[in-house]
């Protein structure tokens, strides 16, 4: 199948106060249409940088990123971004928050309301249309963010640890919701997380990143049956995959550790 998103030999170096920080170094991978791809890696390895590059917030230092064979130059509504931080606008009600993207892309006034209401239903915020974000829990805030992003019908969803700040139970609900939405809309999804379980549970493919400067260390085909349920986390296949990924991440994390390797980790992974 044809590649939807292609990241080709991408480098990103940040310049700040005469200091160069290489964040990504020769990163390459591609995602197919309708694929759900997770990205995991040690902390600070450049995951957010990757999302920001694909979102078009800044350009790669070297290399290129293609979406539908077209080079990404600027941000655009063909990509929908969901951030880790709660980003609903406090001065807008839930419904107006969801309409925000539609307003930015100059969608016909009349249909905004209809579409927004549709997504209120899809993300399960019925009855909260007129609440302000300050009255919402973290999970509900992320539902708003998800609906706001989906409403403009982007080609691909870019999600940067969207559930990272939620408690385990809420996170489970949100994962389930996202999988349902994915099944219904069949969007291509690039999903960054630091949680190996989350990566495996959600994705068709897991990209494992090296320590900073980040590049792809391994690409793991998950191949677990769908629809997923929590039982798969106890299957042999799942446990094998998890161990494999965890080993790479731990090894990579240790590379940037300035202290002696903790004893527990030594025994398990060295």
């Amino acid at each position: 199948m044809k590649a939807k998103l292609e990241v080709k030999n991408v480098y990103k170096v940040f310049l700040s106060r005469n200091k160069e920080t290489p964040a990504l170094s020769d990163m390459s991978f591609s995602i197919r249409e309708k694929e759900f791809v997770s990205v995991v890696g040690p902390s600070g390895c450049g995951k957010t940088t990757l999302i920001n590059l694909v979102a078009g917030f800044y350009a790669p230092t070297k290399g290129e990123i293609l979406l539908n064979d077209k080079r990404i130059m600027y941000p655009g509504a063909d990509r929908g971004v969901v951030f880790q931080k709660y980003t609903s606008f406090p001065w807008l009600t839930v419904l107006d928050n969801i309409k925000f993207g539609l307003k930015i892309i100059n969608f016909p006034h009349k249909e905004r309301e209809k579409i927004a209401k549709e997504y209120v239903k899809i993300v399960g915020l019925n009855g909260f249309e007129n609440e302000y974000p300050k009255n919402l829990s973290g999970g509900m805030q992320q539902r708003v963010a998800l609906a706001r992003t989906l409403a403009t019908n982007p080609d691909i969803l870019l999600m940067d640890e969207p559930f990272g700040a939620l408690d385990t139970q809420t996170r489970r609900f949100m994962q389930d919701l996202l999988l349902q939405i994915w099944k219904k809309t069949r969007k291509t999804i690039l999903f960054v997380t630091h949680d190996v379980d989350e990566a495996l549970f959600m994705a068709d493919k897991v990209l494992v990143m090296s320590t900073r400067p980040g590049h792809i260390k391994d690409i793991v085909d998950v191949g677990l049956e769908r629809p997923r349920n929590l039982k798969i986390e106890f299957s042999n296949k799942y446990i094998k995959l998890k161990e494999h990924i965890q080993k790479i991440i731990t090894k990579e994390s240790l590379k940037s550790l300035n202290e002696p390797i903790p004893e527990t980790i030594k025994q398990l992974y060295q």
């Binding site: 979102a55 917030f57 600027y74 941000p75 655009g76 509504a77 990509r79 929908g80 971004v81 951030f83 931080k85 980003t87 606008f89 925000f100 993207g101 930015i104 892309i105 706001r148 992003t149 403009t152």
Partner: peptide, 10 residues
């Protein structure tokens, strides 16, 4: 982050 949200929609 709010500015980035707006930018993400172009």
């Amino acid at each position: 982050n709010h500015i980035n949200v707006a930018r993400s929609f172009g």
